[in-house]
Structures are given as C-alpha cells and as structure tokens.
Nucleic acid binder design. Structure first.
Lengths: 259, 259
DNA sequence: TGACGTCACTTGTCCTTACGAGTGATGACT
DNA sequence: AGTCATCACTCGTAAGGACAAGTGACGTCA
C-alpha cells in the first residue's frame, strides 16, 4: 500500500519503512514480520529487493531471520549480565583483586607456549619475539548462558620469578593475582576495551547472532617495579553482557602510587 | 582455478577462500582484491554468488568496497585514539575529576528538556517520567578526526539544588563535576560499557565504515548522599577509539552497594 | 491413539539479464 | 599545452526464474 519515494535505492526505501515501523513500535519485539512474499506485494517490488532490504536490517541488528519461519523483531533487550571490573576483596577480607570471576569452565583449557605478537607485545610493552606462557579457556555463566573466551599470557621471565604462575597459568585470575601479591607485588592494572565484529570462529564458539559485536577487554597487570606481569584477554558477545567500572574520585591516586 | 567443495553454500566457500587469503597475508592490507568479474571466472560462479560472498566479508569488517574502484582489504589497524577514563586532577592539583576531555565541539550543542526513558531511568535509578535537562553535543578529536556523540542528562531536582548545572548543562563534564564538588558533593561514578551496531543516523553523523560497532559508555555520577546526579553518555565508532581504565588495587574500597 | 507422510508455507541458494552510476585513463579537439 | 568528451572498467540496483531446505500443521493409516 504505502508507496515510497524518498531517499535513494528502492531497497533502502523498503528497509527504511520497515525500520520505522519497528522503531515506532508498530511491530512489537519478538513479533513476526510479514513474509518476503507479503513484502513484495506490499511494496510492489521483486524478491531480491525485499531480501536486500531485509539484509540491511539484519546488518543493523534490528531483526533475526529464521530459516523456514520468518523474520522476527529482535528484542533489543539490554545485556543481562553486568561484569563488574572494579576491585573486590576475597571472602576473608584480606586481599584485593580484580573482580569478575563469575565464570565457569565450559571446556578443558588448553595450555601452550607462544611468543609475543605485534598486538600482545604492544600491550605488554615487550620486545617482539619474547617467549610467553599462554592459556586459552572457554567460559560460561550458567545462569544466563553467556559464553566468553579467555586468554592468559605470562612472560617466561615472570613465570621463572614466580614459579607457581608458570606451573598453572590456567587458574582463574583471582588465584594468579593472589600468587603475585604473595610474591610481594603491589598490583596496578589497566584495562583496555575495544569492540569489533567477530571472526567466523568467534561467531560459532560464542554462539553469536547476526550483527553482534564482540567486546574485547585486555587487562594488563603491572607489579611494584612497573614491569608487566600478566596479560589477560576476555572476549564475549556484546548482546548478552556489559562492563561496569566503579570509580571513586577521592580514593584514587592522581598520577601514580604515592605510598 | 581453485575448485572448492567443503563446507556449505557456494558463496560461503568463496568467502572462506578469500577470507583465508586475507588472513594469511596473501592479500596485503589496503590492497585491491580481484574484481567481481575476475572472481566469477576464478571460482566459476555467477555474480550474485560472488557478491554474496563479498557481502559476508563486508559484514565481518574484513574488506571495504568502493563504488567504481573495487574491494580493498581493510587495514585492521588498532584504534588510534585511547580514551583514558580514569581520574585525573585539574592543573592546580586541587580537584579530582573524570578525565577524557580531549574533545572539541564540532557543532552547536542542542539543549532541551525531556523525561526519563526506560533505559535512562534504569541507569539513573529514577522512576519513569522524571523530568530532565538534556544536552546533545557532537564532538571531535581534531588530531585523529574521530567523532563522538555526547549527551548530558541532569534531573530537574539536581539542577534546582545546584543552579549552575541547569543553566549550562552543555559545559564539558569537567566543569560540571567541578560545580558539583563545589556544592559539597564527594563524587563516585560508575561507567557502563556496551557495544552494538549503529543505527543509520549514528552511522552518518559518526561517519562510520561498514561493519563498525559503536562503543557506548554511560557514566553516572553519584553524590555524597548516594543520589544520582548526572548521566553522561558517549558514543563513538570502535574503529578509531578504545577505552582505558587504570585501576590500583590497594586504594579502592572493598565493596559497594549493588544497584 | 499414535506414528508418519504429505503439503503448504517459509527462507536459502543460485542462475541469467539488464541497466545505472562512480572512476580513471585515453585521446581528440581547442 | 590544456580541456573535455569518450570509453572501459569498476560496483550498485533491480527484475525474473528455478530449486533446495527448514518448519509446522493437517490428515491418513496402522
């Protein structure tokens, strides 16, 4: 019925019309959109044009298409899982460490030895081709079904100085940080947050829907002597989880540790 | 030449072949890929199939296509701009505030009055339909050309108690936080980080390439009485900028009331 | 009643054809 | 030499047809 004329290509006009209908609430979340055939009739266009419009909306993350069933308005629900990335104490209250260890292991971790790449070397501030211990784990949060990929990288140099680290680089981060503190380090860490589209293998292992970016957190911990000790990387779909940083102004040092 | 057979659909096989060639470095970043016609000949498929494969690679953010020129391997460069979201002092060293005010105004800010939506209400912990001062600004970092959308929301209640706020809600955040501190508040804030695909208007105003997610930071500041004072939202393309949080373990309070 | 095959409906894949539109080089004309 | 039309190449858009594959309901048959 609604003849459209405005912006540019036909399929963009169709996409715009559907998008508007979705955003205005005419189509409720999780509801079924008209089928391709119906849209063809509705706008008087061919099937490729309709499919092109639908592809655009998929790329925007507005709809989900299920083979044999139809297109559904994606329930734009906010993330259900909030990862608190501040600090928290252990139960005995004696020790401060990075929080966020809600995860459970979904698969056997795989340990390996590797070398710094351009990206990891940049973060660690190391020369290229430095040797590292590595451990990759696939984590889940059972209560929400969220999945995440976790990687721990420890320079050989550090592992030699703190043997417990190299022996079990797959321990949850809290344990590793505890070991480091026991070894006399006062920890400071920096988290770098990036977002990007997933590679195909990340899409499958994280079970990501269409048009779902990945949040990629790199946490690098420095010790007392300002040397990088551990690099942790966490990757997860941005549809399910979000990050939270709690910052208290009057407690934070201005530039760097004073005491 | 290279006949392919493996996984599923033809176009996926073509996409996989090209993807592999890119990731293995056979095609250098910024280099020109074979044209659609060449790919048709190379893999013995029709143009829609080739275009479908190319569309998949675009959605992954692996390539950029320029009308009339061809497809180019996207230089997967890391973000060039790091937003330090910790705390920093003013020049006189007297006051601690959120850092990150490197931005310049790209357009006239627009002030308005609005009400809490479901999303903002949730963050502010307010009942729905509460009245707010709002200000939207378009910011740029001239040195890198990065653009960002910024929004400030201040509840009426707060603006009345601290009149300077409501009068000029468009001041950079540092100024607002300074005013609040002068009014006797000790500030604590929480930043929530999410990522999602941009809406069309965000794509255009932020000048985002294909398959580029948005990083969406919501900073909500609480005062001495634990009441929400200001909600700031910052949105920018994840291709250019990243976030950095510096955390020092032995200075941070142990725990905090969960919202 | 229960199991199963069929059918109608959906989206997925693939092909062919045609033309529009942006880009850059070539070459003719001034 | 400089200007500009033309042309060949690129990707973008749109239509048409055909068949495969997933889904669910309906009806038949044991």
């Amino acid at each position: 019925m609604s003849e459209i004329q405005r912006p540019g290509a036909l399929y963009q006009q169709v996409a715009a019309a559907i998008r508007e209908a979705i955003l205005s609430g005419e189509f409720e979340p999780d509801s079924l959109l008209p089928s391709e055939a119906q849209l063809m009739a509705r706008y008087g266009v061919s099937r490729p044009t309709v499919r092109n419009a639908i592809a655009a909306l998929r790329a925007e993350g507005l709809i989900d298409v299920r083979h044999g069933k139809g297109s559904f308005v994606r329930s734009s629900g906010q993330p259900v899982l909030t990862l608190e990335r501040g600090v928290s104490r252990t139960r005995d209250g004696k020790f401060v460490m990075p929080s966020g260890d809600i995860w459970q292991e979904a698969e056997e971790p795989s340990t390996y030895r590797t070398r710094t790449t351009k990206a990891t070397g940049r973060l660690l501030g190391l020369d290229v081709e430095e040797a590292l211990f590595g451990c990759d784990r696939l984590l889940t949060d059972p209560s929400t079904g969220t999945r995440a990929m976790h990687r721990t990288l420890i320079p050989f140099e550090v592992a030699e100085a703190v043997p417990l680290l190299g022996q079990e680089p797959c321990k949850p981060s809290a344990a590793l940080y505890w070991v480091l503190t026991q070894a006399g380090h006062k920890l400071t860490w920096t988290e770098t947050v990036r977002a990007r589209m997933p590679l195909p293998d990340e899409r499958t292992t994280l079970r990501l829907p269409d048009a779902t970016p990945i949040l990629h957190v790199s946490r690098i911990a420095h010790g007392t002597d300002d040397r990088p000790l551990i690099l942790e990387e966490l990757r997860f779909g941005a549809d399910r989880a979000e990050l939270a940083y709690r910052i208290t102004a009057d407690r934070q040092p201005a530039q760097h540790p004073r005491s």
